[in-house]
Simulated scan of single mutants.
Amino acid sequence: MYQVRLASRSEFVPIRHLRYHVRTWGQPGPGKVPLVLVHGWMDVAASWQFMVDAFSADHYVIAPDWRGYGLTEAAPTDNYWFPDYLADLDFLLDHYADGQPVDLVGHSMGGNIAMLYTGSRPERIRKLVNLEGFGMAATRPSQAPKRYAKWMDELKALHRGELALKAYDDLGGVARRLMKTNRRLDPRKADWLASHWARTDAQGTWHIMGDAAHKITNAQLFRVDEVLEIYKCITAPVLAVEASDDSLTQWWQGRYTLDEYHERLKSVPDCRIARIEDAGHMLHHDQPEALARLLEAFLAE
């Protein structure tokens, strides 16, 4: 099993009628800028452990499980809306850093949230690191009718139990699932992550700690013009980090490319792009040491 260097503390915070689970590492102190880490889709806050262990400096780190993930309560709904993540983050910063700008790091979906939040609340973010938060492919208004129909169809499928997440007979099965998704993941890390990514029921079956409603397609189209207007309002320096593996090509099959993503980033007033070698989309698992060095250098500038 992976040996943790710096253990986290678990806290539960009331956020917008939900009992939010938050992991913290280190302690707040004079001159310390809180470092807020927000995870991606179907992930949990514990996923940051390897990167936190690789830090050379003493940070006060705050990492929530998003609503419906990990140990945070699922919202009383059958689908999730992106603006809720921004509002949850806003309330979270009120609790942990009221009146103090923070450094914000987001991975994948968390990176998208972090970009939108920073453009909407620029005064609250000192520096922003976006780890493979590419956003989505551009949409057209003509796609709206079928998009709403697909959303309603998926809601019915959810209520019929057709979108339930796969269960596993033992924790090893969860670890093998993680390694299948990420070929670079060390078995010791996979075993450790599995114990935080899933939990067992009374019958001994292991279940992923993610609400199946997260699988529902967003009913609204992804509007690039709106996103770019938000990007223009970001005042914090931004570091956009990419893995050497091109996840966009794999996911979108040419419908959305790295070149398009880089073009969008030109709307951010102060943005630079960095790359982590020998890494895939879960770069904080694949190369936590290299990522920690890159992140700390950027934050210390």
Rank of each mutant, 00 (worst) to 15 (best):
L71E: 04
I208W: 07
L165W: 06
N130I: 13
P83T: 07
A190P: 05
A114P: 00
N182M: 11
L128V: 02
E162Q: 11
R140I: 13
C233R: 14
G110V: 06
L178K: 07
E229N: 14
P269S: 00
G161I: 12
R9H: 02
G68F: 02
A57V: 05
Q3L: 10
H214M: 05
L283Y: 00
K32I: 14
R184D: 08
L89R: 03
A213V: 02
D225G: 10
R184P: 03
C271G: 00
A219W: 01
S120D: 07
G110L: 07
I234Q: 00
H59M: 11
K166I: 07
T205W: 15
F55T: 11
V36A: 08
M51S: 09
A149N: 11
M1Y: 15
Q143P: 07
W25M: 11
K180R: 14
E277W: 00
D78S: 05
T205R: 15
G133T: 10
H207P: 15
L299D: 09
R23T: 12
N130T: 05
A194D: 03
H17S: 07
L37N: 06
A300P: 09
L116R: 09
A63Y: 02
G110C: 06
D201C: 08
A190Q: 12
G68M: 02
Y148P: 05
V102T: 00
F91M: 09
E296W: 12
R264C: 04
P30S: 04
W66S: 04
L131N: 01
A46I: 04
T249R: 11
R124D: 00
W41Y: 12
R272V: 10
A45G: 11
G29F: 14
E301S: 12
G254I: 06
K127Q: 08
Q220H: 03
E301T: 15
Q27V: 08
W41N: 10
I62Q: 01
L295I: 13
A274H: 03
V44C: 14
I216V: 13
D53S: 08
T72S: 15
W48A: 12
T139M: 14
H21G: 10
G110Y: 13
D88F: 00
V61M: 05
H95Y: 11
D58I: 05
G40C: 06
N112L: 00
A138W: 06
Y60I: 10
H159P: 06
G111M: 01
Q203A: 15
G204L: 14
L228P: 00
A149K: 08
H39S: 01
D170F: 09
P76R: 12
A292T: 03
L131F: 02
A194W: 04
C271K: 00
D259E: 15
C233K: 14
K180H: 13
H284R: 13
L294K: 10
S56Y: 02
D278R: 15
G106L: 10
D246E: 04
D246Y: 05
E73Q: 15
M109S: 07
S108P: 01
R188Y: 08
G173S: 08
V33A: 13
D191L: 11
L71N: 10
G119F: 02
R16H: 04
A175I: 03
R124Y: 00
E11L: 08
G280E: 07
V22A: 13
D169R: 15
T181G: 12
S56H: 08
G280S: 11
E296D: 09
A240M: 05
M209D: 06
M282G: 07
V268P: 00
